[in-house]
């Protein structure tokens, strides 16, 4: 399994054709206390860059994009009851949705952890 990052501060864990998507610790710090999350329904087809989920803090609302194309296999229902998971464990329990990838070649343009760290440092 390998983890990739995007410039939109999302992470994606890939295991074969299956992927899990969330937002990074840096992103949750920027948002502040998350109060509401909307995750996509199972079976929803997403193209790379499509709006996939919504995350809201008290003062900000952001869209979470699909980092790569695929079909949603699961949304994290736990977030509806406890959106604070995104603040406490953004890169673990606070995942947003799982995807069946339709084109793994799209992963090639994404960053690895070292590159993302460097990217954040440059902001």
């Amino acid at each position: 399994m390998s983890r990739y990052f995007t410039e939109d501060h999302e992470w994606i864990d890939v295991d074969g054709n299956n992927a899990t998507v969330g937002i990074t610790n840096y992103a949750q710090e920027q948002l502040g206390d998350v109060v509401f999350v909307e995750v996509p329904e199972n079976g929803k087809e997403l193209g790379k860059g499509d709006d996939a989920a919504v995350v809201e803090s008290v003062k900000a609302a952001s869209d979470v994009y699909a980092p790569v194309s695929g079909t949603v296999s699961e949304g994290n229902v736990a977030l509806a009851d406890d959106p604070s998971l995104i603040n406490t464990d953004p890169e673990g329990e606070g995942w947003f949705f799982k995807l069946d990838l339709s084109d793994t070649s799209q992963l090639e343009g994404l960053m690895d952890e070292a590159a993302y760290k460097e990217f954040v440092a440059s902001l």
Partner: peptide
């Protein structure tokens, strides 16, 4: 719940 509103969501 002001994230529904124009001053945050703007065109959405």
């Amino acid at each position: 719940l002001s994230t529904r509103e124009q001053h945050i969501r703007r065109e959405k």
